[in-house]
């Protein structure tokens, strides 16, 4: 990605992120930057972080840390405090994944398994991912392994066509693991670079449906022991504290290697990914900021953190 392009994306992202941002974020900045650090500043800080869905625990840890920094660094100005906090969050969100969550980069075909609860935007995200790989000149196969939801296969088919990717599909109601297997086999035969597997949305608490995902993973391993190389959990930015439970259970079942945070073009901040990063070491890899094919962006920690506080 060249520099000009990158700036363009960031500017665009900013406009998207700032759309209709009203209320507390602006106020917080005002409070935070109005001058002396007093109890109001910490209270407002707590309000901001919690309202960004960062969760009680993470918020309290951050606020306590800031209290300490104020003492140790002799901060007097709220503006300084804000800068310190921003740095702290950017550092946290820039950390690479812990070993347990690392993805295999070089594999051909590279296999990405895309999972998540119902309605987070898996199918649309897969279309965007396919499009992104296509722009890189790669040959992409998508696997329609959501054989449960009515018309999910048709939906992916339309997107695959738009993105210029091949699709491997069975009938509605077929075994998702068989679809995934066939897709990888086809990708190997056709010498494709990237396989992206769409799965049915499922609540992480449904044991039988989690077993189904494990089976997909097992079956892929028969063709390539290192596959899937990436397990991407799609997370809706509007989700609250339940995202922690999602991250925990999907990771236990499959070993999530990264998060795609969708719907950041709304008013939700998606702060729960900070708690997820802190607790499980799972990084955010991409963000979704709209409904068209090029609305998937690599995650940029600085932009994300700024958006938490800016209007």
């Amino acid at each position: 990605m060249n520099e000009k392009n990158r700036v363009g994306i960031i500017a665009r992202l900013r406009t998207r992120l700032s759309k209709a941002r009203e209320g507390f974020a602006k106020r917080v900045r005002n409070v935070l930057r109005k001058g002396a650090i007093d109890e109001d500043v910490f209270e407002e800080l707590e309000a901001t972080l919690i309202q960004a869905d960062m969760g009680v625990k993470t918020t309290h840890q951050l606020v306590e840390k800031m209290r300490e920094r104020v003492k140790s660094d002799r901060l007097t100005d709220a503006e300084q405090l804000y800068t310190v906090l921003e740095e702290e969050l950017v550092a946290l969100m820039s950390q690479p994944s812990t070993d347990a969550h690392s993805a295999v980069q070089s594999a051909s075909p590279h296999v990405a398994l895309v999972i998540g609860v119902n309605g987070v935007g898996k199918t649309t995200t897969i279309a965007k991912l396919a499009h992104m790989h296509r722009l890189d000149g790669k040959k992409v196969v998508v696997a329609a392994a959501d054989t449960f939801r009515a018309a999910a296969i048709e939906q992916l088919e339309i997107w695959a066509q738009r993105a210029g990717a091949d699709i491997v599909k069975h009938k509605s109601g077929a075994d998702p693991a068989a679809v995934a297997y066939d897709a990888l086999a086809a990708a190997i035969a056709r010498k494709c670079d990237q396989v992206i597997i769409d799965t049915a949305g499922r609540l992480h608490t449904k044991t039988n449906l989690m077993e189904e995902l494990k089976k997909i993973k097992r079956v892929l391993g028969k063709l390539d022991p290192s596959a899937p190389h990436e397990v991407l959990m799609v997370l809706d930015a509007t989700t609250g504290q339940n995202a922690l439970s999602q991250a925990r259970l999907f990771t236990e079942a499959l070993g999530v290697t990264g998060i795609i945070l969708t719907k950041l073009d709304g008013t939700a901040k998606g702060g729960i990914v900070v708690a997820i990063h802190q607790e499980f070491g799972i990084p955010v890899k991409f963000i979704g900021v709209g409904e068209s094919l090029d609305d998937l962006k690599p995650f940029a920690p600085t932009e994300f953190v700024k958006a938490l506080f800016e209007d």
């Binding site: 309202q51 960004a52 869905d53 609860v117 509007t238 989700t239 008013t267 939700a268």
Partner: peptide
């Protein structure tokens, strides 16, 4: 509305 919605539920 999704029962898993977080703080943004009020805005929505």
């Amino acid at each position: 509305a999704d029962a898993m919605t977080g703080q943004d539920a009020v805005n929505v």
